[in-house]
């Protein structure tokens, strides 16, 4: 609080406040009430996609990281290739490859068209979730590789000496310590994942970004929806940063 009360910061805050007030009063916001339900749904869908893809991606990243850190070569090599390919190509390209590529391929197979999964495969969101999950897994597989390798050998040796089974070691010793190490990086990566979600609008998934584009097209108002969009993303980023800070503080760390 005291940091905010330095004279130059007070002036800057007042200026920022004035800017906000000017934006509220002088820009056009009359479209807001009409689109409010859509905006709410868009925000909900963005958060939903973010949560689902980070959780699924993390579930994939742990075996990917393990395989690269300690796996035999026939597991390590494919994992490394997967991570390299995912990290070496733009997400937009991966997304379009899956949506347009798979989407044009599936109808050619009658057994897929007849299966009970078909109603889902015809929609866009499964492809969005798949692409974002794979992308998150690729980046986090690399992070987890470093994290698994960074856990001190003595910890694992001690657990082994106590006769702990390997899965229990992973669950009780290795994974928690690796996650703890990777937590600051993961926080940043989740924010990056949030910033990747608007790409799904390009394959017709209606997230908050696509709602804003819709407002722009309907009303020919350019700046206001974009400003709202920026504010929404900044708010979600702020919440994510706070959540990860809280998580990091929950785990006591000894700073040497």
């Amino acid at each position: 609080m005291r940091a905010l009360l330095q004279p130059h910061r007070v002036v800057m805050l007042v200026l920022a406040l004035a800017l906000v007030v000017w934006c509220v009063l002088n820009l056009r916001w009359d479209w807001l009430p009409k689109y409010l339900p859509m905006i709410g749904q868009g925000i909900w869908r963005t958060i939903w996609i973010l949560v689902v893809t980070t959780v699924l991606g993390m579930a994939l990243a742990v075996p990917l990281g393990l395989a690269q850190a300690v796996g035999p070569w026939f597991l390590a090599a494919p994992a490394r290739v997967f991570c390299t390919v995912i990290r070496g190509t733009p997400l937009l390209l991966q997304l379009w490859l899956l949506y347009f590529g798979l989407g044009s391929l599936f109808p050619q197979f009658p057994w897929i068209k007849d299966s009970s999964l078909w109603p889902y495969l015809r929609q866009a969101w499964p492809y969005a979730v798949l692409a974002l999950t794979l992308s998150f897994a690729g980046y986090e597989g690399e992070v987890m590789r470093g994290a698994f390798k960074g856990v001190q050998r003595g910890q694992l040796e001690a657990a082994r000496a106590m006769g702990m089974p390997r899965l229990t070691i992973l669950r009780r010793i290795w994974l928690p310590q690796a996650l703890h190490r990777a937590l600051p990086t993961l926080g940043g990566e989740v924010v990056l994942q949030l910033k990747a979600t608007p790409l799904v609008a390009t394959i017709t998934v209606v997230d908050i970004y696509s709602v804003a584009s819709r407002v722009r097209q309907d009303t020919f108002i350019v700046y206001e929806p974009l400003l709202l969009l920026a504010v929404v993303y900044m708010a979600i980023t702020g919440l994510l940063v706070l959540a990860f800070r809280w998580l990091e503080h929950r785990v006591p760390a000894r700073v040497a």
């Binding site: 910033k195 970004y209 993303y233 702020g238």
Partner: peptide
Amino acid sequence: VVRAVPELVLILILYYA
């Protein structure tokens, strides 16, 4: 701000603005 807002949104804002 730049690191908190998606590049796609920034590109649109900066492009028009």
